[in-house]
């Protein structure tokens, strides 16, 4: 019986002493951790994508609080996160344009793209482009091995029935992981407000790129767009039209004059329809006026 009592007492006392010792030590060696860091870390998406330039969300949270890093660096978080961080830090929220991935090549997916040969190797773009400039006829275009889709942590890139890569602009956070994954630098992060894009990255001469492209979206460097643009926002450099997104105002004039479908404007069709409608209306009015005029002359003739 006494052994039982002694063992309970001994361990109990030991535990008590250690507990008190630790409690004292935790007071003495208490480390102040700024609660702001924890709060910001909770707000951040915790995707640890590294788009902010810091190794992970926790590091960024710390940098914001302690090193005064910019609060608008979290691309996946978007405006919501910036606002909340601003609230915690007591700063004005400086909103940034939400950026989404634009794929500057729409050669038509696995079915339409012209291939030089049938690539049957490791299923990654990086390996595919190593063999005689890649399987496509076009040495600049997408090889459709989907490194970018695999790189996307937000389920924002999908492959459609045709093998084309579709960016889900709702889900895309603009983190840029796909752009880094793409060995041909086809993907660019562009503000979601920009509508007009050049869907070609070929720096080959017009005739070559036109022949190589399977979807008639090759830029043939004809420079019609440069002449059409009233804002000096599109230039042809190295046989390729490039839009200066700083200057572009989404007017779509370049898309209207482009002889191929290289310049994409979702409103091009709408505008064309409107134009056609307006033309039809004008013609109808013209017809009416001529008819009325004719009637008037007829009446005048009768009176005279």
């Amino acid at each position: 019986m006494s052994i039982l009592l002694y063992s309970v007492l001994t361990l109990g006392t030991l535990g008590l002493i250690y507990g008190l010792g630790l409690a004292f030590a935790s007071k003495k060696f208490h480390v102040e951790i700024d609660p702001k860091i924890e709060n910001i870390n909770e707000i951040l998406p915790n995707a640890n994508c590294g788009a902010c330039g810091y190794p992970g969300c926790a590091a960024y949270a710390e940098a914001v609080v302690e090193k005064g890093a910019e609060i608008n660096l979290c691309a996946p978080g978007g405006d919501d996160v910036i606002k909340q961080i601003a609230e915690i830090m007591g700063m004005e929220a400086t909103t940034t344009d939400r950026k989404v991935a634009i794929i500057h090549c729409q050669s038509g997916g696995k079915d339409n793209t012209n291939f030089k040969y049938n690539y049957q190797g490791i299923e990654t773009c990086k390996a595919a482009i190593l063999i005689s400039g890649g399987p496509n006829a076009c040495n600049y275009g997408c090889v459709y091995q989907y490194d970018c889709v695999r790189a996307c942590k937000f389920d924002a890139m999908h492959i459609d029935d045709n093998g084309m890569i579709i960016v889900d602009k709702e889900k895309c956070t603009g983190c840029g992981a796909c752009a880094i994954a793409c060995p041909r630098n086809i993907i660019e992060m562009v503000s979601i407000k920009k509508r007009v894009h050049v869907l070609c990255v070929s720096e080959d001469k017009g005739a070559i790129s036109r022949k190589a492209c399977g979807n008639n979206t090759a830029c043939i460097a004809c420079s019609l767009c440069v002449k059409a643009c009233k804002f000096d926002a599109i230039h042809v450099i190295d046989n390729l039209a490039k839009i200066d997104y700083e200057k572009c105002i989404n007017c779509g004039m370049c898309a209207d004059v482009c002889p191929t479908s290289a310049i994409f404007d979702p409103l091009k069709e709408v505008r064309a329809q409107k134009k056609a409608a307006a033309k039809a209306k004008a013609e109808a009015m013209k017809k009416e006026i001529t008819e009325q005029k004719a009637e008037v002359t007829k009446k005048e003739d009768q009176l005279l």
Binding site: Y6, T10, L11, L14, Y18, G21, L22, S26, F29, V31
Partner: peptide, 26 residues
């Protein structure tokens, strides 16, 4: 109470490690 050796030692070591952790963190 030699039979309590293991549990008493583990208790001691755990507390010590906790202490070291606090000191290093500081």
């Amino acid at each position: 109470l030699e039979f309590l050796q293991t549990i008493a030692f583990i208790l001691t070591i755990a507390s010590l490690v906790q202490l070291v952790e606090m000191i290093i963190q500081k």
